[in-house]
């Protein structure tokens, strides 16, 4: 019979945080998210957690399950053992139980200007992009911004100004995009004191990414691109 030890905390009550244990029925194919819904509907209606799509697309059910940050909707209870502890994402303020305040996460994301900045006048019809040019960014667009990488990153833990693996992975998507014209300005910003060079290549982000993306590798590529731009005098103005 699966047992969930769920982190409970309500800052409004002022009570200490604690773990509450719930016994669940054994149902073949049950995911952790379904288990949490089972608790909510049958055992404890006060439990708070986020979810939306239930199929690994929206990224809202990211939490610490067992020993790893994962998506609750993509994690089978059978795969993680009978007794599992469930905690909220780290490095963010807890709103209640498993729900955290994602504002800082999205604030960092906005800083990298996650949209195309064309160099001149936009074309009257469409931007032309060859399949090969598109293939360069295929990998990074799969990020669903679930914050698993952000929660697992020790640099985020100590430095609230660090842009974070999610923002840097997405940044490479724009740097590598043939339609974008602000590459050197982007690199100047990403090479700043809270950008790629703060990463210690710890690989936590890569290990936990539920979409098997490689933020560590993306940061490595950005480091090389920024260095090259610096040495060739192309690193744009970062103001």
């Amino acid at each position: 019979m699966p047992t969930f030890k769920v982190f409970r905390y309500n800052p409004k009550t002022g009570d200490q945080a604690y773990f509450q244990t719930y016994q669940l029925p054994e149902i073949k194919g049950m995911t952790v998210l379904e288990g949490l819904y089972y608790i909510l509907e049958n055992i404890d209606p006060t439990l708070a957690f986020r979810s939306s799509c239930r199929q690994g697309v929206c990224g809202s059910c990211a939490m610490h399950i067992g020993e790893k940050y994962r998506l609750a909707c993509e994690t089978q209870i059978a795969d993680i053992g009978d007794s599992v502890s469930i905690r909220p994402l780290a490095h963010m303020k807890i709103i209640r139980d498993l729900v955290v305040d994602l504002d800082p996460f999205f604030a960092q994301y906005e800083k990298i200007k996650p949209y195309l900045i064309p160099s001149g006048e936009p074309p009257t019809r469409e931007f032309k992009q060859s399949p090969a040019q598109r293939a360069k960014i295929d990998f990074h667009v799969d990020c669903i911004l679930c914050a698993c990488c952000y929660g697992s990153c020790p640099v985020v833990a100590t430095d609230e100004k660090y842009l974070g693996p999610h923002a840097l992975l997405k940044a490479l998507r724009f740097v590598d995009d043939s339609r974008d014209g602000a590459t050197n300005e982007r690199l100047a910003y990403l090479a700043s004191d809270f950008g790629v060079f703060r990463c210690h290549t710890i690989f936590n982000c890569q290990q936990v990414c539920p979409k098997d993306l490689d933020p560590t590798g993306a940061i490595g590529k950005l480091k090389m691109k920024a260095l090259w731009a610096k040495f060739t005098g192309k690193l744009g103005k970062n103001e």
Binding site: I112, A191, L227, N238, E239
Partner: peptide, 15 residues
């Protein structure tokens, strides 16, 4: 990219 930033960490990282 509105903030004024320094690239000192690029140099120290490289060195």
């Amino acid at each position: 990219m509105a903030e004024k930033v320094s690239n000192q960490s690029l140099v120290t990282w490289f060195l």
